[in-house]
Design a protein around this nucleic acid. Structure first.
Lengths: 330, 330
DNA sequence: TTGTATGCGTTATCAG
DNA sequence: CTGATAACGCATACAA
């Protein structure tokens, strides 16, 4: 049978109310009785019923986390950061996978609301403005990760893409490269645009000729990266380096370069973005821009807690510093 | 303000009860009123309060899923299967990451109980017998994934490791290999034992001499695999093939083989286990034993639903069929 | 077909 | 310091 406050109260010869105060350490109780009650609760293997507790107190201690794809180690690390942050603050996360599917996203938000989450951490898909608008209208505390939406006063945490690209380009330029290609990601993604702009800007800053630094977009998959890289190097045989939107795409580039009987880094140097574990495993190990994923998760949770406590009514954004990791592909 | 049944009832000129029946399509109501109520509910943007509903109905529609590590794409696919299965049956999953940490595991179980999950899907760490015992004692419907515990009547879903290894060994033998090494995983893991036994058994079945087929264990990481493979090929220079516990370890073996200036597959063939995405990306693409991860997740969910409906009081186990994927490493 | 009364397990607000 | 009482939002049983 289920152990309830009432049961414990009966055994302890007090009322449920007193037991509740003892267990929640809410004071207004003598140390002796509290100790006795705690003892009895332990003996009876009591587990508080958070369903009931939430209903009455209107505090669920739940935070909703919506992530597009769990297979991607990129998100996995962020989630770990979020979880640790939540745990330390007595919150539990409700993790839901949207698979970049808008219908699913709406479902997930409804479920979050239905379970009375106290806040949400979102990594929304490309076009989720309406969703974000709804969240805002409902005034559910919210922090965006990886993306920001201009025109909305919603806090966000994302990598400093611009500086990351700049670090990579500077490195290549420092190595003497003057003809650098850019293998970009999915056309619809905001991040693609940001990184592309950062790339052209960095090229300009370095005094290189943009005309010598062509770029292509690919669908975002390994296979598409390989295909597009082939086009890139066949159309621009003078390229000596390729900057990639992500590590995964860099691996596609690896394949393309190899299949053209060129070598890395001697014929073409390659730089990735993300620093996933795999980057140390491939050969040659990939030079890449590291994103502090775990810390991004923690930072997001921290911001959310602030929002929830209404500490800052002003929306605040945070750009996380990237770091260039030099390995043997450059 | 929060929209409740009562609010809707007031607007519709009925009682909360009637609204409840309308929304839950529970019958005993005229089509006209139901329609009207649904309409009003939609207009008011009503979201059912599952906290309250659970408390009263004693049905949370929640299933707890405990997974050791979310970074591992192996688990990610299983989780997708679970989620899809849950979704189709009106359940939501509560996903928690144990990080193979026992304390955390206990915490997670307590949280599951606290939120009144109706069942749990567990991928427990090496030594969690006590935990499993507790679950059993509480008679919480439960299905284990990847592991089974002898002596407990708990349903499980796991890959057919024995046949998987057999498929791989047969393949190698068919290619003419007679000296096959086995790079095993973490010593404490049950799966390591199973696969090791399956390996020696397969070698015997194939008529090969076990003495020519040495095996080593490694800590389970990429680096440890590399190190142990070096030892293996240095101590047994006649080896022409290595069967690996997992794809990740196979990549460690790749590195070791390369650093010994040997080539894959000409000098040494390599077979992995799991078929993670990466296997197609490395070069040469890895021959490996595919585990139907997504379907394992679905199967586990299916079993759990059965347990929850008490359809089968008998514990049932399920071994999922593996499939050899031949690529260029053999 | 609909309404009324009751309780799920807990916490909040009083009063004692 | 402790107890009595009500309320959270919903679903169940029964009455009308």
């Amino acid at each position: 049978m289920k152990v309830t406050l009432k049961e414990i109260a009966r055994r302890a010869g007090v009322t449920a109310n007193t037991v509740s105060r003892a267990l929640n350490n809410r004071g207004g109780i003598s140390e002796a009785t509290q100790k006795r009650i705690l003892q009895i609760a332990r003996e009876m293997n009591y587990i508080p019923d958070r369903i009931a507790s939430s209903l009455r107190s209107k505090k669920s201690n739940l935070v909703g986390v919506m992530v597009p794809d769990i297979s991607n180690p990129y998100y996995a690390d962020i989630i770990r950061g979020i979880e640790d942050g939540a745990f330390e603050n007595g919150f539990q996360i409700l993790l839901s996978i949207s698979q970049e599917d808008q219908t699913r996203e709406w479902n997930i938000i409804d479920q979050f609301r239905s379970l009375r989450v106290e806040g949400v951490l979102l990594m929304p898909s490309y076009e989720s403005r309406e969703l974000i608008q709804t969240i805002a209208d409902l005034s559910i505390p919210c922090v965006l990760i990886n993306r920001r939406y201009m025109g909305y006063e919603i806090p966000f945490v994302m990598p400093d893409n611009v500086n990351g690209i700049r670090q990579a380009v500077s490195h290549l330029v420092g190595k003497g490269h003057e003809r650098i290609g850019f293998l970009n990601g999915h056309p619809g993604s905001m991040t693609s645009q940001i990184r592309y702009n950062a790339f052209t800007e960095s090229i300009r800053e370095s005094g290189l000729e943009l005309a010598q630094c062509p770029s292509v977009m690919c669908a975002g998959s390994y296979a598409s990266a390989c295909e597009k890289t082939k086009e890139l190097i066949q159309n621009h045989s003078s390229l000596t380096a390729i900057m990639c939107f992500s590590d995964l795409l860099a691996f596609g580039a690896y394949k393309a370069i190899r299949e053209n009987d060129l070598s890395i880094p001697d014929d073409i140097a390659v730089v990735g973005f993300d620093d996933i574990e795999l980057s140390t495993i491939v050969s040659p190990p990939l030079t890449t821009v590291q994103i502090p994923r775990y810390n991004m998760g923690r930072a997001a949770m921290k911001q959310l807690l602030k929002s929830m406590n209404k500490e800052s009514s002003l929306s605040s954004g945070e750009y996380m510093e990237t770091k260039l990791i030099v390995r043997n592909s450059t």
